Simulated scan of single mutants.
Amino acid sequence: MPTMAIQTNYAKFNWFPSGLPVYLNLVPAILQLVVVQSNIFVVAVFLGKKMYFGINVILIGMAIADAASVILLMISYWFALVLHNHSSGSFTENQVHFLCVTYKYGTSVSITFNMVSIWLMVCLGVVKFLLVRFPLQAKNMLTTGRLLFATFLVYVTAILFTFPHYVTDNYDMSAKIYYGKPKDHDIFYCALRRKKEDDFVMYLENDDRLVRSICVHLIPIVVLLCTNSFFCYKLVRKNGIVDPSPKFIRSVKIVCALTFIYLLTEIPFTVFFCLQYYVGVTEKPISFLITNVFYISFTLYVLRFLNYLSNFWVYLVLNKKFRQACCSMFCRRRI
Rank of each mutant, 00 (worst) to 15 (best):
I6P: 01
N9D: 14
A11T: 11
K12G: 14
K12I: 15
F13G: 04
W15V: 03
Y23A: 15
Y23S: 15
Y23K: 15
I30C: 10
L31S: 10
L31N: 09
L33T: 07
V34N: 02
V35P: 04
V35R: 00
V35T: 11
Q37F: 13
N39M: 05
V42H: 01
V42D: 00
A44G: 08
F46V: 05
F46H: 05
G48I: 04
Y52Q: 14
G54D: 01
I55Y: 01
N56S: 05
I58P: 04
I60H: 04
A63G: 04
A63K: 00
I64Q: 09
L72E: 06
L73P: 12
S76K: 00
Y77D: 07
Y77P: 00
V82N: 08
G89W: 02
G89D: 03
G89Y: 01
T92Y: 01
H97C: 08
C100I: 01
V101E: 12
T102I: 06
K104W: 13
K104Q: 14
Y105D: 12
G106W: 14
T107G: 10
S108M: 13
V109D: 04
M115F: 14
S117L: 05
L120Q: 11
C123S: 07
G125M: 03
V127Q: 00
F129R: 05
L130K: 00
P135G: 00
K139F: 01
K139G: 01
N140E: 14
T144F: 07
L148H: 03
A150K: 00
F152Q: 13
F152L: 15
V154W: 09
Y155D: 07
I159K: 04
F163N: 03
F163M: 11
Y166M: 10
D169T: 07
N170I: 13
N170Y: 08
A175W: 06
K176C: 05
G180W: 10
K181A: 14
P182V: 10
H185E: 14
F188Q: 02
R194Q: 13
K196Q: 09
F200M: 10
F200H: 06
D208P: 11
I214W: 09
I214P: 06
H217G: 14
I219A: 10
V222N: 04
V223M: 02
L224A: 02
C226R: 04
N228D: 08
F231E: 01
L235D: 01
L235S: 03
K238H: 02
N239E: 14
I241D: 01
V242Q: 06
V242R: 05
F248L: 03
F248H: 05
S251M: 09
V252L: 01
K253E: 11
T259Q: 08
E266T: 12
P268R: 09
P268I: 13
F269R: 13
T270S: 11
F272A: 13
F272P: 11
C274E: 03
Y277G: 10
V281D: 11
I286L: 07
I286S: 03
F288G: 08
Y295N: 15
I296Y: 08
S297G: 08
S297R: 15
Y301A: 02
V302F: 11
V302H: 09
L303E: 15
L303T: 15
R304P: 09
W313V: 00
V314P: 00
Y315P: 03
L316M: 11
L318I: 10
N319T: 00
K320P: 01
K321F: 06
Q324A: 12
C326G: 09
S328D: 15
S328Y: 10
M329K: 12
C331S: 12
